[in-house]
Nucleic acid binder design. Sequence first.
DNA 1: TTGCTCCTCACGTCACGTGAGGTGGC
DNA 2: TTGCTCCTCACGTCACGTGAGGTGGC
Lengths: 189, 189
Amino acid sequence: MDDTVWSIGDLAAATGLTVRALHHYDAINLVTPSMRTTAGHRRYTDGDVRRLHRVLALRGFGFTLAEIGSLLDRPDRDVRDLLQHQLDQTTDRIAKATKLKDRIETILARLGDPDADALIQIIEEMTAVERSYTPEQFAELAAQRQAMWERLTEDERAELVRKREEATSRFTAEELEQLHRSRPAINQS
Amino acid sequence: MDDTVWSIGDLAAATGLTVRALHHYDAINLVTPSMRTTAGHRRYTDGDVRRLHRVLALRGFGFTLAEIGSLLDRPDRDVRDLLQHQLDQTTDRIAKATKLKDRIETILARLGDPDADALIQIIEEMTAVERSYTPEQFAELAAQRQAMWERLTEDERAELVRKREEATSRFTAEELEQLHRSRPAINQS
DNA sequence: TTGCTCCTCACGTCACGTGAGGTGGC
DNA sequence: TTGCTCCTCACGTCACGTGAGGTGGC
């Protein structure tokens, strides 16, 4: 009973995965069938199937396949940290998605019987912040900010980042993303 | 004043994008600079910058670059549908992330001072549903479900899908994903 | 001449989907 | 012999990141 062996198609049907997914797990050495038939066909043993189930369980918790692999193969890492990280990421995703949802609902409410031009106009109103500057003023602003940043000490920069994050809640999603993108670039210089 | 022209570096600094991102937008014909210098350097006009701002605004609403492109170039599509679709997707993402968050918090709470083995065990307990079957029983189940499905009429199938979705709230995230993956495969046959 | 910005390839990312062309077991 | 399952490439996805190697303006 314990020496039952699975073809890839049966295993795929039983787990709801695709054959291609199992091929992929094999290719990255995540779940490798212990046997092959003489024709080269994969045969999954009971142990392989147990490992696959662990993979699917962990995948359900949002771990990447790479993380799952190292968790299963070197189970000495600080699991609490990993889980905490997952939790933080998930919380963050919820917050961002919730904000986006609010904005979309706002737009839908304001939208009468619109075409795309109207949509774009409304969205631009909601996100129009920089557009009140001329390009030159805008470039000047960016340059000044950059120059100011470079005159700061490490501590002052950290303080600024904190303040920005406090102010962040009043920003639009677009600006959030832009801040997020521009910060590492600035920090590296 | 209106004929100011931007270099790619200045525009990147002013918007918080990377130069590479602007290259990308150019490559996919989303935002193409109207001019080049004799040396081949991109020069963005005021109109280009306005288009870029529209792109960023729409991106903030979760549209893909392809969607943004067709929105800007053929503004005749049903905008309300597009936005509604965005909203549905976002709501769905929030629901899934919230469920995941609950599960992670549950695990973290149950976790004393654990190593990965303990984690995997706990996760397996939380997700252990199929594991109460032997592989043969499991394969049998899958085969029976498949056979049953194929005997159904379209209406009966739709009814089943509805019922499954009702029951879904009691399922784990893993099972949700598996259902989600297996359904289109079955429907195609 | 030295920096700095700019240019064009071109591969890598993540978890597979989707053919393409061919082989083995019932 | 006909289907069906299986096999191995290998390109595509999405929005860029990250060098690699080279050129132009101050």
